[in-house]
Design a protein around this nucleic acid. Structure first.
Lengths: 351, 351
DNA sequence: CTTCGATACCCAAACGTTTGGGCCAATCGT
DNA sequence: ACGATTGGCCCAAACGTTTGGGTATCGAAG
């Protein structure tokens, strides 16, 4: 099955050396290497090693060193492009550090989070990255108590180290944009109540409106899954005749692009033209956002970068360094769905 | 760091037994177990084991048994929801079989495929799943020559074992649907030329039209990346004034939902109403398809199932069983973008 | 002519399992 | 009452590394 049963011993025997010598030459840092063998020997070892295609056996190494160079990654679902993109960053950085990752879906179900964490830990990973944190962080406290190094991405929780978008600020950006365009009657599709992303984005949005003297009533803030279907359902409620709070809002802020797309769909089914009759703002700037029939105004969050930084922090943490949480800067992307740059229609007047 | 330095030896010593006895009781199959210890002893071992929370060290096991229970998965990009969904199936099935997976992105770049394959193989995986096969299968031939068990998912290549959608049939379904609706002048956004998915879907589509006596000229078949931007660009070309082949087509078949969404966007920018002025059919039935402002007619492909089956085949392959390729059944999902069930507009007449 | 310090190696134990083969005592068949 | 089973367990080697310690050789210093 395996092409190479070539081990340190193979090399050592062929060269009349001891395996420890070969090991040091091949794996030790330069300074140790010099003590281990003469230049000539080093060369001989190196040549034979790649002639035979020697590959160290990672299981043996891990067994001996108690380091697996493995990290576990938990996400709600990889089929959510946001998490998938974050994971791409994680994996990219992991590869650069010589680490491999196990990634698994927990569907935001606590029992699955537990089970998968155990599974991953049983594999003796060196650390973990959680992309599915519940904001209360109870479960994570337990994990921390077991001494497992980990960092959170995408969502924050408790006082655990996390790399997130500055979601609160992102919420403000969305609000400022809609305020500027004159929307005074707005609603929020706020995502799942246990995810800090939705919570913080909503808070930033609501606070900004409050500071402008406009209170967004609680009935105008709906929780929903982070997907198109959830967004559609929520939007249908918000826009229906018997909308909560009397008449429907003129703008909707969805804390996630997919929810926003769902809202766009709902609007259209009600005969509303997005961008003209209803402004919609999403979050994340998913690649799709710019390509939609009605391009989506949204808050760009650096997802890939978030993954990279998360991994980098984890590496430091594993090394024993101190690390602090990071908030990455979001950016407003103005497009047609909030009434800007409508291709061949007059720009809508806000409100 | 690790919470449990509890090994077989820990247990054995505490119980005054030999580690081999403990090992057999804890891990051997029932028949060996009976020979290994008395019922009373078995009980004692079991209780202590989970009292102390014994977790076998997988590195030691792998070292000894030469099986890692690891499999490597290569995909073009996980941020493509199609592959992400397939991976969810893979991972789900892997977990059921006690396997863990490494998944990595190769962005369809051959050099990356090579590099990542080496990386994964260096981890001594028991097998691999490729979701990024080039249809020629040259690279895969090399991998096969090295004796690594693997299966392909999503795309087929050469004569390697694969689990795919019956893409050719899917193409036919799309064609039949458009023919039925009277479209005689059609175009195809065919995806990347090296991916069997695009090739087969296009072939099924083209063949069906040919059988109906309608030839689709080559200029009406455009390759493009499997994403919204690629679809938009291709559609813009197809629909432009100086469209290849004189006047623009009345229908576009995109071999991928995201490309189809891009096409929808392009249509809209040209002032065409999808479903009325232009029919668009996608492929995969991504969750988004049904939720779009103009719901997308598309061919559903069982992505999750494809992943599951792929993993199951791999497990058999690793066991040494013979396995054959599988083609999963696609299904036509008729929605508004091909002129059906338009919410509050008259159904469009085809062509 | 010892002694010292490098240089260039070798030794051996350990990491935690698995597994083919023992060994002893009690039980069974006859 | 004897040898043959068999139940219940132990032994030891092996998987492929890493790593703290040797040791032998040699040139130079004292």
């Amino acid at each position: 099955m395996d092409t190479q049963p070539v081990t340190l011993r193979t090399l050592a025997e062929r060269l009349g050396l001891h395996v420890s010598t070969v090991s040091r030459v091949l794996h030790a840092k330069p300074d140790e290497q010099l003590r281990a063998a003469s230049e000539a020997t080093v060369a001989r070892i190196r040549t034979l090693a790649d002639e035979l295609g020697y590959q160290p056996n990672p299981h043996a190494t891990s067994l001996r060193t108690r380091r697996s160079n493995l990290v576990g990654v938990l996400v709600p679902r990889l089929s959510d492009i946001v998490l998938a993109t974050i994971y791409e960053g994680i994996e990219e950085s992991a590869a650069e550090h010589g680490l491999s990752t196990f990634v698994t879906n927990t569907r935001d179900i606590p029992a699955a989070q537990r089970a998968r964490t155990e599974m991953v830990l049983a594999r003796r990973v060196d650390g973990m990255i959680f992309g599915d944190a519940y904001v209360d962080g109870r479960f994570l406290d337990e994990v921390a108590a077991r001494g497992v190094p980990f960092v959170l991405v995408s969502r924050r929780a408790g006082r655990h180290v996390s790399v997130t978008c500055d979601d609160y600020h992102g919420g403000r950006l969305a609000a400022e944009h809609l305020l500027e365009r004159g929307h005074r009657s707005v609603a929020v599709i706020a995502g799942e109540p246990y995810a800090s992303t939705g919570i913080d984005r909503t808070a930033g949005f609501v606070d900004t409106y409050r500071e402008a003297g406009l209170r967004i009533p609680p009935e105008r803030i709906l929780h929903s899954p982070f997907d198109a279907r959830g967004g559609r359902l929520a939007a249908e409620k918000l826009l229906s005749r018997d909308a909560p709070g009397g008449r429907p809002p003129t703008a909707i802020f969805a804390v996630n692009d997919f929810a926003a797309i769902g809202a766009l769909g709902a609007a259209r089914d009600l005969g509303l033209l997005a961008g003209t009759d209803l402004a919609v703002v999403g979050f994340n700037d998913t690649p799709l956002a710019a390509e939609l029939p009605i391009a989506l105004t949204t808050i760009r969050s650096p997802m890939h970068e978030m993954g990279r930084r998360g991994m980098e922090l984890l590496v430091k943490l594993i090394r024993g360094d101190e690390v602090a949480a990071e908030r990455l800067r979001p950016e407003l992307m103005v497009r047609a769905s909030s009434g800007a740059d409508l291709p061949q229609r007059r720009p809508a007047a806000g409100s």
